[in-house]
Amino acid sequence: MRDGALDAQINAGIERYIAKQRAAQAAAGARKEQRSAALAKNIRPVSPQRDHIYGNPEAEVSLIEYSDFECPFCKRFHVTAKEVVDSYDGRVNWVYRHFPLAFHNPGAQKQAEASECANALGGNEAFWRYADKIYERTRSNGNGFPLSGLLPLAEELGLDTEEFRVCLETGKFAGRVLEDYNDGTNIGITGTPGNVLRNNRTGRVVVRAGAVPAANLKNALDGLFR
């Protein structure tokens, strides 16, 4: 066999191997996505009485995010999620649920509790203002926003500082944060941001983990309207 023919045969074999590997990876990815979607179907339905909702509470589709205030990817996604939801004119809302990762504690846990204290004292709007400020200012990775800054932030936002201090120091909402975390674990969330997109009328869900780019997020959301 001539060298040229042998080279062509070798190259063809390599290309077939690469194609098989890609097909196997695609199949594995599809199976993983199916397993994730099957678990995510058990997600707790959105409740205006229980959840922190940005946008129209009655929106047809929800972006449900399990998040960690000290996660750098969540910091990036926080901006993306708001921009995307705003672009849907009330057809999509954004639901924030807590998922503080152990290696980001105690910071992530106490920040989550602090945001709940803000909610208790100032309602849903205060929750989102408090959350926005933490994500805006944190350097992430566990020590990005000092715990000593949680009370001054409440004061900056016009909340009752004494009530806030008592709320935070007593761990009043530690159980609430744990409920969100356990909910996430039960539907297969392992990292942050963990995003489940849900059509609230049909119950259909799509899982999109990580700091999904805006275009990819919109494509997934659009698919839930069809």
Results as ranks from 00 to 15, higher is better:
residue 177 V to P: 01
residue 154 A to T: 02
residue 154 A to H: 04
residue 197 L to N: 02
residue 191 G to L: 10
residue 207 V to E: 09
residue 150 L to V: 03
residue 118 A to I: 06
residue 154 A to E: 00
residue 162 E to N: 14
residue 205 V to A: 11
residue 179 E to P: 06
residue 128 W to V: 02
residue 159 L to W: 02
residue 197 L to I: 12
residue 123 G to C: 04
residue 109 Q to F: 14
residue 144 G to P: 01
residue 168 L to K: 10
residue 107 G to C: 01
residue 142 G to T: 01
residue 141 N to T: 07
residue 151 L to A: 12
residue 125 E to L: 09
residue 200 N to P: 09
residue 111 Q to I: 05
residue 197 L to Q: 05
residue 115 S to H: 05
residue 193 P to G: 07
residue 139 R to L: 14
residue 205 V to N: 08
residue 190 T to C: 13
residue 144 G to N: 01
residue 205 V to G: 05
residue 171 G to W: 03
residue 142 G to Y: 00
residue 157 L to K: 01
residue 166 V to Y: 14
residue 135 Y to F: 15
residue 135 Y to K: 06
residue 186 N to V: 12
residue 114 A to D: 03
residue 161 T to E: 05
residue 124 N to E: 02
residue 125 E to F: 09
residue 137 R to T: 11
residue 134 I to Y: 00
residue 98 H to R: 06
residue 174 A to T: 14
residue 100 P to A: 13
residue 106 P to H: 05
residue 125 E to M: 06
residue 125 E to W: 08
residue 157 L to I: 13
residue 195 N to D: 08
residue 189 I to F: 14
residue 160 D to K: 12
residue 182 N to A: 11
residue 157 L to C: 13
residue 130 Y to N: 01
residue 191 G to N: 07
residue 206 V to M: 12
residue 144 G to H: 04
residue 106 P to G: 02
residue 168 L to C: 10
residue 116 E to D: 10
residue 202 T to G: 06
residue 145 F to W: 03
residue 117 C to R: 03
residue 203 G to C: 11
residue 120 A to I: 00
residue 159 L to N: 03
residue 165 R to P: 07
residue 133 K to A: 14
residue 111 Q to G: 04
residue 164 F to R: 01
residue 160 D to A: 15
residue 167 C to F: 04
residue 153 L to I: 10
residue 112 A to F: 00
residue 163 E to S: 11
residue 164 F to I: 06
residue 184 G to E: 02
residue 109 Q to Y: 14
residue 152 P to H: 08
residue 200 N to S: 13
residue 98 H to A: 09
residue 120 A to F: 00
residue 104 H to D: 06
residue 202 T to I: 11
residue 139 R to K: 15
residue 154 A to C: 12
residue 135 Y to G: 04
residue 173 F to Q: 07
residue 126 A to Y: 09
residue 161 T to K: 15
residue 136 E to G: 11
residue 175 G to F: 05
residue 99 F to D: 01
residue 179 E to D: 14
residue 152 P to Q: 08
residue 156 E to W: 05
residue 125 E to K: 08
residue 136 E to R: 08
residue 140 S to A: 15
residue 116 E to F: 01
residue 98 H to M: 06
residue 176 R to K: 13
residue 119 N to T: 02
